[in-house]
Design a protein around this nucleic acid. Sequence first.
DNA 1: CGGAGGGATTGAATCGTTTCATGCGGGGGT
DNA 2: ACCCCCGCATGAAACGATTCAATCCCTCCG
Lengths: 335, 335
Amino acid sequence: MTTSSMKDVAQAAGVSVGTVSNVLNRPDAVAEETRRRVQAAIAKLGYVRNDSARQLRAGRSRNVAIVVLDVANPFFTDVVRGAEPLVDSAGGVVTVCDSGEDVRREQRHLEILEEQRVLGLLITPVDDSSAERIERLAAHDIPVVLVDRGAGLHPHCSVAVDDVHGGRLAARHLVERGHGSIAFAGGPPSIPQVRDRLAGCRTVCEASGVRLEEFTSVSMNVAGGRQAVEQMLRLPEAPTALFCANDLVALGALQGLTMHGIKVPEECAIIGYDDIDFAAAAAVPLSSIRQPRAQLGRTAAQLLFEEISEGKGHTHRNVVFQPELVARASTAVDL
Amino acid sequence: MTTSSMKDVAQAAGVSVGTVSNVLNRPDAVAEETRRRVQAAIAKLGYVRNDSARQLRAGRSRNVAIVVLDVANPFFTDVVRGAEPLVDSAGGVVTVCDSGEDVRREQRHLEILEEQRVLGLLITPVDDSSAERIERLAAHDIPVVLVDRGAGLHPHCSVAVDDVHGGRLAARHLVERGHGSIAFAGGPPSIPQVRDRLAGCRTVCEASGVRLEEFTSVSMNVAGGRQAVEQMLRLPEAPTALFCANDLVALGALQGLTMHGIKVPEECAIIGYDDIDFAAAAAVPLSSIRQPRAQLGRTAAQLLFEEISEGKGHTHRNVVFQPELVARASTAVDL
DNA sequence: CGGAGGGATTGAATCGTTTCATGCGGGGGT
DNA sequence: ACCCCCGCATGAAACGATTCAATCCCTCCG
């Protein structure tokens, strides 16, 4: 069965293509009897609209793209989940793209998305060098909302969580527990989230005279966490607490420490970031810095559609949420 | 800056649109000097190809859709990850769709994908009622590969893992540990994976005279696991082991049991399914049935492109992998 | 009875590519 | 000197939908 077009339907129903189009898009403008005939023809031929043709004419697609750093990270799938219902109900379609924290993959995705004339873009940029690429889309009238990325630089709407504050919360918690030296794990520091969380951590450490070791050469996943532990244990004097840039790293670190027979939290405390669902279920339930994941996605989608509907007269908004400390067993010992 | 088209570029470079098209698609067919001029014009105008127009002409898009049951389940993101590189290198683009185990959402996605004239489809159908919808696509010459779903019924390529065998492995492991009664958690049974895993479990239980309690009214996520535990504890005589239809359920069950002060594995053993990365990192490291997740995705993509390139003369292939028992602490006690 | 108005339908133009037959001029082979 | 072929560029015809001015036919009103 070869695919049939509106023309075929029109012919089968004995009307013009214009009428078929009307049946599909403004049914009330068509007489009862005609409409029925056309619908019968559609059913008989198994006709399916051709979206390319439609988009070509419309000049825009109804795809909303979300570019995330890592689809395998539950944090991001939760963000996507938050955005989806809103996009859906606005008649849009969500496309998820995974940059894998790789600038080149992000680049490739953005190129394709631009060629597709997407309706809008929610993106967590890999690093600052993304700005230029993103500006390109914006220059071509594709609204962009930055997700989990401070406003500042970019002339766009954004939703974010105050990562510097999150870093402070984590560090303060550890310092209060009596730790005199702390390790930070996660990188590379070109990732803004890493930089900010580290910065917050640093201010607290400096203010309270706590030694801070930084392991920023490891990647933001479970393997990275294990690696960080290896590096840490090579130090002459290992810190007694570990602040991980996200929960995946923290879970990896927990595994690494356990493998080395190091007790958590007695010999080394761990705190993560994001508070993904798995954090609470870990071997040692992980303390973490909670972000409002779903709300981040929901709000981002909301801002996007506001921008779309307001058009030119739109002024950008930057929404910032506050993170929250969740203390669990992995930091439950006072030194 | 309003978006510019090939016509604009052609004009700016003093050539015809045909030549511009050639510069983009078959650069060697164009004289050095001309090519340079055109490229300069492209850069100057910030021209970006319009994919809709291209697709309209081509009759097909280069999107390969993957429809999964749950993006928040690491099992599926791993499958997607496995498929991605292959699709990429074939010049395709991956689109991930989440059906959320909801027939209606699956339906909606399939409709949109058909309108988009996707290049091909990898899908884990929600249940048997999906068949009809999928046949529609196939009838319109869209190749379909079934993922994690036995061949049997459908005239399509497929990759799957022998879930019945997986169920047997799990049950046998528990029986060998000396458990005289087993609970199964996960549902609904309309999901083929659930049905098969349960079936395998059943045969072993019957063969060895072990009592089997089935909790198939709970959903396939962490919350479902907790629910199953509640139901189980209401029994006059609770089983001593719990086989969960996937690892998310198992993690939830582990939390539930812990909340009730029930020791795992001493008072109740748990075994999950999928062996996602988080299983090993759980409070009590989870025994599980491992599936070759990435390979499932990779092979699926491979079959898809084989079918695409072979065209009409293609004969479907059904690849079945064997699952594997991974025993960890959550079942590490003999009764 | 004529004309105005309105509902239903039509047909053609349009969106931006790709493709293909056609044209053109110059070199090489016979 | 002739032909042929080759490399390069052109222009027009698709692809399939949407949109809008134009048309047609009726009814209703004066």
